[in-house]
């Protein structure tokens, strides 16, 4: 028995996207293999590393643990949709300035995860960043510079938003 393919209507990074998929295909598989959004990385493929993080209707999820058919009617934000039309998002810029990546495979997941955090909590403490990001594994950096980059980006975003002066 091979069930037929299903049509799914979504918005991905602000654009309407309709695709066909098998029910057994994960959102990650469809994003990567059918739609070309390879920024979400397939690493552990069972929810333990966070490299495939995306926002699904604004909620941070592992796209390997979502069936593509579940995305019907939903909006998806991938790492490809983070940067503004010109230049990089501040988080992306800060990751580069802080050397917060080495091999870079976990980086898209961390950026999406950090983006979700800062939307919810623009003023996270170091411990809050560490807790929020605990579902994103990095084996290269020891997390130190990632945490610093997120905290710095948060401070800069607040400054930009409100003209707030940074207290070191």
């Amino acid at each position: 028995m091979t069930p037929g393919k299903v049509t799914v209507h979504t918005r991905i990074n602000g654009e309407e996207v309709t695709f066909l998929c098998e029910p057994r295909q994960s959102l990650l598989e469809v994003l990567r293999m059918e739609l070309g959004f390879t920024g979400a990385k397939e690493c552990c493929n069972n929810g333990n590393c966070g490299a495939c993080s995306v926002l699904l209707d604004g909620v941070l999820v592992n796209s390997c643990l979502v069936l593509a058919v579940e995305a019907e009617g939903k909006s998806i934000l991938t790492v490809e949709g983070i940067a503004p039309a010109e230049g990089l998002h501040l988080l992306q810029q800060k990751f580069l300035e802080h050397a917060a990546l080495q091999c870079g495979i976990c980086t898209p997941g961390f950026i999406v995860s950090a983006y979700a955090l800062l939307q919810r909590n623009p003023r996270p403490s170091e411990q809050e960043v560490r807790r929020w990001m605990a579902g994103n594994l990095c084996r290269c950096t020891g997390y130190d510079k990632i945490i610093a980059a997120v905290l710095d980006a948060a401070a800069c975003l607040r400054e930009k938003a409100s003209g707030e002066v940074r207290v070191p």
Partner: peptide, 9 residues
């Protein structure tokens, strides 16, 4: 139950 991503689902 799980990290942030798992909490979302």
């Amino acid at each position: 139950v799980g990290g942030t991503q798992i909490q979302g689902r």
